[in-house]
């Protein structure tokens, strides 16, 4: 399996990364590495993690997302996960994975708005 390339885009103060396809351990580590570096380098106040390309999110991936969000938070930035698909949302709830602590939005536009509110009002927003 060739290494997937996930470019990190920058929109003003916000970083956007789109995850898709199959994520194995090695890929995940690479993503965490690059995001940490980008957040630190750019001083971005917000990161959007787009998962609309993930058709299967099992407990492993869910834990990975939680870890990445936690890491970004530690670096002083907010993270919002956008684009969870309906089938994935239902499955995650049924799976029983705790996701309540994660900020989520339907798409990049709503995600940007949420990041704005998080920046202005902290984690209690919404």
């Amino acid at each position: 399996m060739t290494a997937e390339v996930f470019p990190i885009m920058r929109i003003g103060d916000t970083l956007l990364i789109s995850l898709q396809g199959e994520l194995d351990d090695a890929t995940v580590l690479r993503i965490e590495d690059r995001l940490a570096n980008e957040v630190a380098r750019t001083g971005a106040t917000g990161t959007l993690i787009d998962v609309s390309g993930l058709t299967i999110v099992d407990s492993f991936i869910a834990r990975v997302l939680t870890r990445v969000v936690g890491m970004i938070r530690l670096l002083g930035s907010h993270a919002v996960i956008v684009g969870i698909q309906p089938a994935v949302a239902i499955t995650l709830v049924e799976l029983g994975v705790p996701m309540g602590h994660l900020h989520t939005a339907l798409n990049a536009e709503q995600g940007m708005a949420l990041l704005r509110r998080l920046r202005d009002h902290g984690d209690r927003a919404d």
Binding site: V57, D58, T91, E94
Partner: peptide, 17 residues
């Protein structure tokens, strides 16, 4: 359907892991 597909694949993914 898509939802049921997702559920069974995710279940299988859990057990494989």
């Amino acid at each position: 359907g898509l939802v049921d597909q997702t559920k069974i694949i995710t279940a299988g993914s859990e057990l494989a892991r």
